[in-house]
Amino acid sequence: MAGDPPSQHSDKDPDAQPTGADLGWTALSYLIGGMLVWGFIGWLVDRWVHTGGVITGIGVVIGCAGGIYLVIQRIGAPPPGPGSS
């Protein structure tokens, strides 16, 4: 609205580093999203081939592994701290 104060997250500085909370929420969303999407795909395949939930479990594990892969690729490991050589 016109009289509202500006929001805390402004897009004025595209070079700003994300905060720790932003990185945490991003990692959590990758993990949960991967498990939900691939678990749902596994559930659909289970319904199609009547395997009794086996492929749903495999889909959830694949989604979790994919989420971990995305977290490592997109966020990466933290930089080395002081004193590490």
Rank of each mutant, 00 (worst) to 15 (best):
A2S: 15
G3P: 12
G3M: 10
D4Y: 15
D4F: 15
P5C: 03
P5L: 13
P6D: 12
P6N: 06
S7C: 05
Q8F: 11
Q8I: 11
S10I: 04
K12E: 15
D13G: 04
D13M: 02
D15N: 12
A16W: 03
A16I: 11
Q17W: 07
Q17G: 03
P18H: 09
P18W: 13
T19M: 03
G20L: 08
G20A: 06
A21D: 10
A21E: 14
A21F: 08
A21L: 13
D22V: 12
D22F: 14
D22S: 13
L23I: 12
L23D: 09
W25P: 02
T26S: 14
T26Q: 11
A27Y: 04
L28A: 09
S29I: 06
S29A: 08
Y30E: 06
L31Y: 06
I32P: 03
I32L: 14
I32E: 05
G34T: 07
G34N: 12
G34V: 05
G34D: 10
M35L: 05
L36E: 02
L36A: 13
W38K: 00
W38Q: 03
G42C: 03
W43R: 06
L44W: 02
V45S: 00
V45A: 10
D46S: 10
R47D: 03
R47Q: 14
V49P: 00
H50D: 12
T51G: 02
T51R: 02
G52Y: 00
G53K: 01
G53N: 01
G53Q: 02
G53I: 00
V54I: 13
V54E: 05
I55W: 01
T56R: 10
T56L: 12
G57R: 00
G57S: 05
I58W: 04
I58R: 00
G59F: 02
V60S: 00
V60R: 01
V60Y: 01
G63I: 07
G63E: 04
G63N: 06
G66C: 07
G66W: 14
G67W: 03
G67K: 06
I68Y: 10
Y69M: 09
L70A: 14
V71N: 15
V71C: 15
I72P: 01
I72R: 12
I72S: 07
I72F: 11
R74T: 08
R74L: 13
I75W: 09
I75M: 06
I75K: 09
G76V: 04
G76L: 03
A77Q: 09
P78H: 09
P80T: 12
G81P: 15
G81N: 07
P82F: 03
G83F: 12
G83H: 12
S84M: 14
S85E: 07
S85A: 10
